[in-house]
Structure formats: C-alpha cells, structure tokens
Write a protein that binds this DNA or RNA. Structure first.
Lengths: 140, 140
DNA sequence: GAATATGTAACTGTTGTTATTACATAAAAG
DNA sequence: CTTTTATGTAATAACAACAGTTACATATTC
C-alpha cells in the first residue's frame, strides 16, 4: 500500500496531495494514509505540511527513490517469523539456532532489497503507463 | 520454526523422531509440529510413518535440502501485503498498479529464494556447531 | 478568526498464527 | 489379536498484527 501512495504522489510530480485525496485513490481511510505518511516522513521520502491547501509530496524526484527505501521505511519488523516462545535451551540445536538463522535470513532479506533497489518509483510509473494505456494525469 | 524442526531432524541423521520429541525441542505443541510436518511431507522433504516406535525423518540428506525449498514448502502466501480492499479503479494509478507491483515483488521474492538456495540444512548444522561448541548428538 | 488539513488517541473488526484439547486411525510390538 | 504408540485432524481459544473508524487537538493558510 505504501508503494501505491507513493506512486500517486509520483504521478502528481511536485503537487501537494491531501491524505483525503490519497485515501480516495487507495480506497481506504485518510487516517491510514496519514499513519503511513508518518513513516515515510521519518525516512525523508515525503514532505508534509499542515494547514489549508497543503498536503504531502515527494521530497525527491521519483527517479531517485527506489523500492528498497520504501520497503525499509515501512516494514519495521522482520518478514520471517520469530517464534513467540524461546527455543528449548536444553536441546543442542535449539540453543544456538536463533542467531544462526538470523544471519541466514538477514542475507536473504538483503538479496531481496538489492533487487528492490533496481526499481525506482519512476520505473513503477513507467510500467503502469505501459500496462495501462489510459493513464494520463487526471483525477489522482 | 520449520527450519528449526528440520535442523533437529538433520541433527539426528536418519533416525526417526516423534512429533512429541520435536515439539519438546522447539518448545511448542506436538500438534503444531505435526501440521508443519504435513507441509514438509507434501514437499517431499520428510518421510513420516505412523505407529509405535515411528516418527519422521528427512527424505534426503541434509546437504541436498536447501532453505529455499523449505521456504516454499512452508510459506504458502505472499510475504507482501495484498490490500483487502480493491484499489479505486477510477484512479489511473490504482487501476493497474496491482499487477505491476506483483511483478516487481515476484522478482524480489525470487532474488530472496535464490539467496536461500545457497544454504543447505547441512550448512545450517555446520554453522550451529561452529557457533555452539557444545553441540554433540545428545538429547535432541 | 474561519477554514482546512495533519497528528494522534481510542476503539472495533478481521485475519493469521500459535496453542490446547480431544479423538479417530494406522502401524508396530507383544 | 490386543495393546501400545504415534500420527492425522477437527474444534476451539488466545493472541498479535493490521486495517478501519470516529473523534478531537493543533498547526497553517486565507
């Protein structure tokens, strides 16, 4: 969903868009969008201003924002399940498996992020326009 | 958790282990383990027999099972969130973004799996033994 | 000062995962 | 053949994560 919001922002290059408008595009609630924008603000991906006639816009050009940044801004937790209960330390395997797997999974996540780095928001926009002929700068 | 169970099985190379014993190692319930084993059976990663003195064991040597196979056997759903509500089709971005992002994410997931393929169960065992000096074939 | 839009809290609902209990069934052991 | 053992599976509960909703204070522009 984060990518969707950013794509809309990229679509309106430069223009400020309100959370209400973004929410309408994603078909969700403005509050959800605002919470998402907070994460994106922390990552310096969007700039938001309060008050009348304001809203959010990208803080960089769409060609200089890749999806790995978006992923990191939004996904705060590990994609791999961390078991709630601790492993049985009496078991020789359970004793040290956690940190071993963490290393392996970190490597896998890294590989994924390197792949996401190859796609920028501008690239996403381009793909959308290619897939959808009727995509011109209109309603948002 | 799936990797943990398989690691224990790899640890006991060849020996059949009951779900109760595996559950004790992972510190969870035998039923959880059995459900997990069902997925692993479907993926032909483990062999399970019923009855007294039975249990599960790897169907291949630990060196010939990589973590990408385990991942595919266990993770049936996409790691990326699919929004519950449909995107607003009136929005030119929302209209075609779904399939565009699906392609990008599929590529990222593929990159991750290719990385996981580089690690076998035997490799995991090796790392555990290296990290934990006191790992000998004991209680399970 | 009025209008507008964000920041944020509180609460609900849904979904997915883990956990627990219970029981039928299959296979081995005696 | 009967007993024992262990899996397969259903029903249910506990729980966390996430999306949604309402409500309101605050900041900014006009």
């Amino acid at each position: 969903m984060a990518v969707h919001v950013l794509a809309v922002l990229a679509y309106k290059e430069g223009d400020r868009v309100t959370s209400a408008r973004l929410a309408a595009s994603v078909n969700t609630n403005p509050v959800i969008v605002r919470r998402l924008l907070l994460s994106l603000q922390r990552a310096r991906l969007v700039e938001t201003r309060k008050g009348a006639g304001s809203g959010s816009r990208l803080s960089r050009s769409p060609g200089r924002i890749n999806l790995a940044e978006v992923y990191r801004a939004v996904e705060d937790v590990e994609p791999f399940a961390s078991p709630a209960r601790k492993a049985n330390t009496a078991c020789p395997v359970g004793h040290c498996i956690r940190e071993t797997l963490n290393r392996v999974f970190a490597s896998a996540e890294n590989a994924m992020e390197r792949d996401l780095e190859k796609t920028t928001l501008a690239g996403v926009i381009g793909m959308i326009k290619a897939a959808c002929p009727g995509a011109a700068k209109k309603t948002g």
